Simulated scan of single mutants.
Amino acid sequence: MTVVVVVVVLVVAIATYLTWLASRLDRLANRVDATRAGLVAQLTARADAARSLARSCGLDDLAIAAERARAGHATLLAEATLDATAEDAENALSRALRSPAVALAVGRAAPGDVHAVDAAAARVALARQFHNDAVGDVRSLAGRRLVRLVHLSGRRPLPAYFEIDDAPPVREDGPPRPESSAEMPGA
């Protein structure tokens, strides 16, 4: 009788643990989907802000890069993966935002457009970090030996990291920042 109780308790404990792992995988996959949607929304906002800046400053290269990036966003919303084509288009937009032509035009541009681009670029960096963190969590859990052995992740492909050059454009128009605490007033 004692052996039967121990075996039943052991089976229930193993089943509970496996169920918990499977539900954790599902929650993490849902988190990846949510962060992916947020990333695409921020990429769209950055492309729209860049297009607005390009129009106000007459920057054709920036407008082309923004349109190319914007064209890929519909595909990103429809497909399950963030692919290299989208990464290339976003990298081209990032390079265009940091180009010397844009830096020269920033002084003539409407401050609202410049602020919108800078804010959107910062939000893209955060959204990409959230997405890549969620992808790392899924890949880490799905890579465990027990999860692979029992096939808890099913046939779902592992999500991919989205690696782009999302360094924000450097603006020279801000107030100078002190280099050390010795230069700060009151220090």
Rank of each mutant, 00 (worst) to 15 (best):
D61I: 00
A49L: 08
G154Y: 01
R95M: 06
A84V: 10
A182L: 08
V138Y: 09
T81I: 02
V12W: 07
D113T: 10
H115N: 15
D83L: 01
T81P: 00
A187P: 12
S94Q: 03
V7Y: 08
P168G: 12
L149Q: 08
A105G: 13
L25H: 13
I164A: 03
R148M: 05
A45H: 03
A120S: 11
Q42R: 15
V7T: 13
A182V: 06
E179Q: 13
P178H: 15
A41H: 12
P157K: 02
A110T: 09
S56L: 00
V106R: 14
P175E: 15
A122C: 00
R98G: 08
A96T: 04
S56Y: 00
V114K: 05
H115K: 13
E163N: 12
R68I: 11
A187T: 10
R156A: 08
A66G: 08
R27A: 14
C57W: 00
V7I: 13
D133F: 00
T19Q: 12
G174N: 06
R123L: 09
R51L: 11
I14C: 08
G186N: 04
L93A: 01
G58C: 03
T75H: 09
A78W: 04
V12S: 13
N30H: 07
L28W: 06
R31S: 14
R171D: 15
A15V: 08
R108F: 05
A80T: 09
R171N: 13
A71C: 01
E172D: 13
A142G: 02
E163V: 08
A120D: 05
P175D: 14
A120T: 10
A187G: 15
G186H: 06
V150C: 03
H73A: 06
Q129V: 09
V147C: 02
A54Y: 01
I164S: 04
P176G: 03
R123C: 04
R55P: 00
R145H: 14
P185I: 04
V9C: 09
L59P: 00
R36T: 09
H115A: 15
L149E: 09
D33L: 07
M1L: 11
A71K: 04
R31F: 05
E179C: 06
L76P: 10
V6E: 11
D173E: 14
A125I: 03
A80V: 02
A22K: 11
D137L: 07
V124A: 07
L76I: 07
E67C: 04
D61A: 10
G112W: 01
L77T: 12
P178A: 15
A122L: 06
R27C: 07
L53D: 02
S181I: 09
W20G: 14
A15K: 04
D26C: 06
I64R: 14
A167P: 00
E67M: 06
P168N: 04
S56W: 00
A29V: 04
A47D: 07
L28D: 15
D173P: 01
A92P: 07
T16A: 14
A37R: 08
A71Y: 01
V40T: 13
D61M: 00
T44G: 14
I64G: 05
A78R: 14
R108M: 07
P100K: 00
A89F: 03
H151A: 11
H73E: 11
V3S: 12
V170F: 02
A125S: 13
H131S: 05
P185R: 12
A121W: 01
R155K: 07
M184R: 15
H115I: 10
R98P: 02
V4F: 11
L97W: 03
